[in-house]
């Protein structure tokens, strides 16, 4: 599903129970113009920047990483994690990419015991 379609679908679903999720009011809370939000939802504009996506996710009660992924982005904090140790995380992600969900979730970080 495209980012814009996802946002509109979610907003319209919320509006059925809560009129404050009109285009105008949602845009107002997120801090953008209603016309801009309308064009994003109709994919006439590219997805907005991370800050706006974050505000939208918060307002709509959606997961930020899912929203960013739909917009073709990765959150800046995850980018920073990868940037600090690019080879390590690149290797990790490539090795894990085909594992089923439960196998990935089983990976834990243990407290390391050393020499004492």
């Amino acid at each position: 599903m495209k980012f814009g379609t996802y946002v509109r679908t979610r907003r319209e679903s919320l509006r059925k129970r809560n009129p404050s999720y009109s285009l105008r009011q949602t845009a107002g809370r997120v801090g953008i113009e209603p016309a801009y939000l309308s064009k994003i939802e109709r994919a006439e504009f590219a997805p907005p920047g991370e800050d706006t996506i974050r505000a939208l996710a918060n307002d709509l009660g959606e997961d930020i990483d899912v929203m960013l992924a739909l917009a073709g982005k990765v959150s800046s904090d995850l980018q920073e994690v990868i940037r600090r140790r690019p080879q390590l995380f690149a290797q990790l992600i490539r090795e894990l990419k085909n594992l089923p969900d439960d196998a990935v979730l089983r990976l834990v970080r243990e407290v390391r015991d050393g020499n004492w």
């Binding site: 407290v111 390391r112 015991d113 050393g114 020499n115 004492w116």
Partner: peptide, 10 residues
């Protein structure tokens, strides 16, 4: 410190 990394832990 380096000594802490040798010990591991938290």
């Amino acid at each position: 410190p380096e000594a802490w990394r040798r010990h591991g832990g938290v």
